[in-house]
Design a protein around this nucleic acid. Sequence first.
DNA 1: GACCAGGCACATC
DNA 2: GATGTGCATGGT
Length: 223
Amino acid sequence: MRKKIFSKDVMEVYRRLFERFGPQGWWPCERAGARGGGRLEIIIGAILTQNTAWNNVEKAIANLRGSGVVSSVRALGAIGSKELSRLIRPSGYYNVKAGRLKNFICFLKRKYGSSLDRLSRLKTDMLRDELLSINGIGPETCDSILLYAFKRPVFVVDAYTRRIFSRHGSFSKDASYDDMQRFFMRAIPASSKLYNEYHALIVRLGKEFCRTNPDCDGCPLWR
DNA sequence: GACCAGGCACATC
DNA sequence: GATGTGCATGGT
């Protein structure tokens, strides 16, 4: 039988995952910062990675870097939609995602004078509502932006989180996003660093075991 | 060639 | 509110 994971076990699960896999080095990473892309690049990555392997997103981001549009909101706003689609082609859904990137840039221009600094002054709840109002930014993308780009202590729930923790009985497999998020945020101290690493470790676990080991052989959560 | 990946919006019932 | 569908590339 799989071990049931209650709220009280969530930190122990984190410790086991960290012990097993170590730090995952997700955003913000030195590489993004050094190239000056930083926060904007993280936001772009969060949108491009929707239902897409990160490997493919990296190719798209490399193209965008080559065109110099990850380093400034103005540059990203100035590029044509067709050209943007072409650059992000490797990340899949390129027409949809080009529209979503443009939606974000239009929102930022209209309401915050194209300034990420101005946007970042909002309190977390308000910032979350603002991001969710943008067409193309749903709960996971929104929370990824809050956590990884703005360093807010918001737990990101994704498909792996649902799959793994519903299998371990923490919540039902059709629990709402908000219910799953509450489960973690009640169990873990509010720390963006902790949430950052935990989400990345869940993704690592999902990739490592859920796909390749349907019987959960060697799963660190197994009892 | 099938299946999957760090989702989301929209139509329909 | 639940369910189904379109969007698309690249790796296994």
